[in-house]
Amino acid sequence: MTLALIFEQLLNGLQFGLMLFLMSAGLTLVFGVMGLINLAHGSLYMIGAFFCAVAAGATGNFWLGLAAGMAAAAAAGALIEMLVIRRLYDRDHLDQVLATFALILILSEATKMVFGPFPLYLNAPPILSGTVNLGLVDYPLYRLALIGFGLLVALGLWLLIARTRLGIRIRAGENDREMIAALGVNIRALYTVVFALGAALAGMAGALVGAVQAVQVGMGEPVLILAFVVIVIGGIGSIRGAMVGALLVGVIDTMGRFLLPRAFAVFLDASQASGIGAALASMLIYLLMALVLVLRPKGLFPLHA
């Protein structure tokens, strides 16, 4: 085990964490502002990836695909908010979970009917293929770009929330929704915009990640589970918490998959160590979540501390 390998794995963890952040930011924003649990967030991620794959395939340009994926996810998000989600704000969380779970099934089947059951082709843009030398290691350029993208989006989101009128409204909505409605803010429009924004972020994550993963029906659900872990760790509703939680999950999951089998290999044979190490590594982030819940039941950065 060399320094170069550890460095590379840290970069991998960082990149994985930043992609999780894109997913969790929308999820936690929607929960913070509207108090809504949206299980269908993973479906918006899938929609982003599928529209990106189709648009990139038709035009031969990945960036047009990325734009199409984000637009499609945002449009789907706005539509879903107006048709379904709007009726759920006053209901309890169980009703929201049931309704948005139904949306997962409907959107997955619809995607299969429109695009077929087979995974789609989507590749990273040629300009970002290959590797770059970072001194210690040759690292894939596309993954480096994903890290840059994730940081850029995090910065943009921070500016949006801290520096713009929309951001003020979002923060106000998180704190006291009746009051801002009473002050004359169109809360319905605000909800639609926030939901579409969260959907666009999910769609962007889907499209970006789709270039290095299988674009297939149901691709959103594993990520959705991780995103929920992230926002529970970070504190539900907190963007800053989502960032910290996503990086923690990304790095711990990657390092666990890397280090645990090696640790067991010290006193077990290679096959056994690999099997047990892999099984334990997959539990690691849930253990982390349990630990955080014991020590800080509202997460690391609770919204209403």
Binding site: Q9, V137, Q213, P222, T254, R257
Partner: peptide
Amino acid sequence: ELYTQLGQTDYAAEIAQ
């Protein structure tokens, strides 16, 4: 020799090894 999670989507950690 590595076992990955069933349904795993990111193999950066494995490829680095």
